[in-house]
Design a protein around this nucleic acid. Sequence first.
DNA 1: AGACGCAAGGTTTTT
DNA 2: CCTTGCGTCT
Length: 784
Amino acid sequence: MPSSTDFLAHLNPSQRRAVEHYCGPLLVVAGAGSGKTRALAYRIANLVLTHKVDPENILAVTFTNKAAREMKERIERLFAEREAIAKHNKPLEALAPYEQTKIKSYVYKTFTKDLWIGTFHALCGRMLRFDIEKYQPPSGYPKWNRNFSIFDESDAQTLVKDIIASRNYDDKKFDPRSVRYAISNAKNQGQSPADVEREQSNYRGRVIADVYQEYQKRLAENNALDFDDLILLPVQLFRQNEQVLAYWHKRFRHILVDEYQDTNRTQYDLLRLLVTNGENTRQFNDWSYRSIFVVGDADQSIYSFRAADFRILLEFQADFGDSLPDDDTRTMVKLEENYRSTANILEAANYLIENNTERIEKVLRPTRGSGESIYIYCADDEIDEAQFVVNQIRHLEMNNPELTWGSFAVLYRTNAQSRAIEEILVRFGLPFTIVGGLRFYDRKEVKDVLAYLRAIANPADSVSIKRIINTPKRGIGKSTIDRLEQVAAQTGVPLWEVIQDETSVQTLAGRSAKPVIAFAQMLQTWQNEMDSMPTSQLVQKVLEDSGYVADLKAQGTDEAEDRLGNVQELLNAVLQFEEENEETNLTMFLANASLASDLDKTTEGQDKISLMTLHSSKGLEFPVVFLVGVEQGLFPNFRSLEDPAALEEERRLCYVGITRAKERLFITHARERRLYGSREPASPSLFLAELPPELVLSNRAGAVPKKMATPIRAVKAKRAESDLPNTHETDWKVGEKVIHRTFGPGQVTHIFGAGNKICLAIKFPGLGQKIIDPKLTSLEKVQS
DNA sequence: AGACGCAAGGTTTTT
DNA sequence: CCTTGCGTCT
C-alpha cells in the first residue's frame, strides 16, 4: 500500500522543504518556472494528509480566479489519485468512469469543498457576506448589508466624476481619473479621508479628501463597495470588532499566499490581523497549529501602479520570521531550478535582471539544454515588424511538427500595439486570440442586464437603477430622472423608494409618471420572485419583461445581433454557475460576475496564436514567444524613463516576458513607429543592450560589423525569397564550412525542411550546435 | 429625447 | 490614427 506522502518523491530538495513545511512562517522565493504552483498545491495536500489539518482551517490566496480554479483542480486530482490507489489499488484513470465520478465527488465533499481558495477580493467578499452587518461605518453613513453591490472601475469612475461636478471642482485641475486613482491609492494604503488631508495638506489634498469622503458616503448609500473596499472593510471590521477577528483568526490556521510580491499594504494588514489576531507585538511567535506560507518573486513584481509593494515580500522575514541571514534562516526557501525554458533564455533573463538593485539575490538554474539563440529583429516600422512576426510563425509552424498555433505568443507593452499584428494575421487567415482587452462583463449590453439584476438584489443601488430606468427607452427622460433623484437626495429617501411611491411620482414626473410607475412595479415583482426561482429563470424573465431583448431584436442591425449573442452568453454564464456550485443565489452570481476577468477564461486547447500585453502574460508559458516594440519610450515606457524605481519595474516586466518562452524567443523593435497618427523615429530599448551579446543573433547594425547586417533588408525589398542567396535546400550540403557573423566559423551538420523553407544546424567550435535560418542570418560560405 | 458632429486625449490594469 | 465624450441641433 503506497503511503500518503508518495507524491513528495517527485520533488527536488527545495520544493520538498517548502511542501513539507508545517507550522510557522515560510517565505518561498520562487523564480519563474520553478514549480511554485505545484508546491502550493502539494503543500495543501500535505497539510491535510500528513498533518491531519481540517480543510476548513486552510485559506489560500491566489492572484486570479483562473489560478484559484486551477489550484482547486490540482488538489482535487491529487486527492482523487490517492483515493483511487487506497480503495482500488489502481491509478484513477484505470477505473471505470462511474468509479472515477464517485471518487471525485467523495473528494469534493470531504476535502476540497471546505478549502477557501480564491483571490483576496473573492475571499474577502465571502467573509463580508457573513459579517458586513457587524461593521460600523463612520458616522453619517448608512450601514451596509449582505446584498451589497460590487462597483467596477467604470462605476467608480462615474461616481467620482459626478461628485467633482456636483461640488463644482474644476475638472481640468481634478481629472476624475486621477482623483479616482488617488482615492484607490489611499484605500490600498489603508488611509481614511482624514489621513489623506493630513498627509497632503494643500488644496489638492483637501479636495481629494473631500471627494473621497463623499464618494465613500455615496457607496454606502448605494449599499455598494468598490474593489478596494472588499479588502479595506474587513481590515477595519477586524480592528473594531474583536469577536469577529477572533473567529476568522481561529478558523484560518494555515494561510497560503501566491504572488506575494504583488500584495499591497491593506492586503498585508489583513493577513497580519488574521495571523496574529491583532497582537501588537512586532515579533509574533505563537505558531502552534498555525502557519503563514507565502510564495513570490520580487523580480516579477509588475503591479506597483496598483499599489502593490514588493518590499512587503522583502520584509517578510523581519515581519514574521527569524530575520537571520539567507544561509542560516529557516524561514526562507529558494526555488531556483527552472523547468520551463532553455538555458540560453534563462541566462538572458538572469543577465538582464542583474541590472536591478532592489531584489533578493537569486538565479534561475537551467535544467534543460542551451537551445536556440535569442533573435533580435530590427524592423523598419510596426508593419514590417508585424510581417516579420507572422512570417516567422508561419515558417516555424510549417517546419516543426511539434508546434501548433497555440504554441505562439506575441507580447507587447500596450494594447494599442496589437493592431498591426492583428491585421497581418487576418490577412494570412491565421487563427489568433487577443487575451485581455475589453472584458466580457464590461460590454454595454452585459452591464445593462447586470444592472437589472443588481437593482433586484440590492434596491439601494441607485446607480444601477438609473442605468436601466430608461433602457430600453420607456419615455423617462433626463429631467424626470434628475427631479426624482433630487427629491431622493433632499429627503434622504433612497431613489428606489421614491419611485415606489405613486403619489410622489405623479406630482414629480408629470407626463413620465406612467412609465416610472410601471417600471417600479416591474422591479418590485422581480424582487418578490427573486428567492422563489433559480437565478437563470429570473434572468430569462427579466430579459423578457423588461423588453430588453425585444428591443434588440427590433433593431435588427448586425450590432444588435452581436449584443443579443452576448446577452445569451450571459444567460449561459448563469446556467454554468448554477451547475458548478451547489447552493447559488442571485447575489452570489453577481459577486462572481463582478470579480470575473477576461484573463479567467481558459485559452488552452483552442490552438490559436495568443496576443496579449506583458502584464497579462504573467504565469503563462509558450514554446515560442515574440516580444515586440522593444523600443526606448515604449518599453521601457516614456513615463518610466526619469524614475529609477519605475525603470526597474519595466525591467522586471521584460524579465517576465523573456521567462514566458520555453524554446525560442524573438525580440523586435522598429526604427520608426506610428504614434497617434504621426510617424515617430524609434530607437532600440536599453534592455536590448542588457542581454548577453553571445546569446543573441540579430539583423541589426551595431550588434555586428555593419556591412554584413543586410540580408533581412532583401526580404523587405519584396524580393522573392528564392532570389535570396543560399536560402534554398539545394544551396547547401552537410559538411560545408561557413562563417557566421556572430559565431564565426562553423560546419553544417544537418539541413531541416525543404525547398526554400529550411533551417541549418551548424556546429561552431567552442559554442556547440546552433540552428540557423539562412534567410534571417548572413552566412558566408568558405571554399575548402 | 435623441441623433449627430466635433474636440480632446490616448501605459500597464489580476480585482 | 482612433476612440470616447460632450454639446448642439432638430
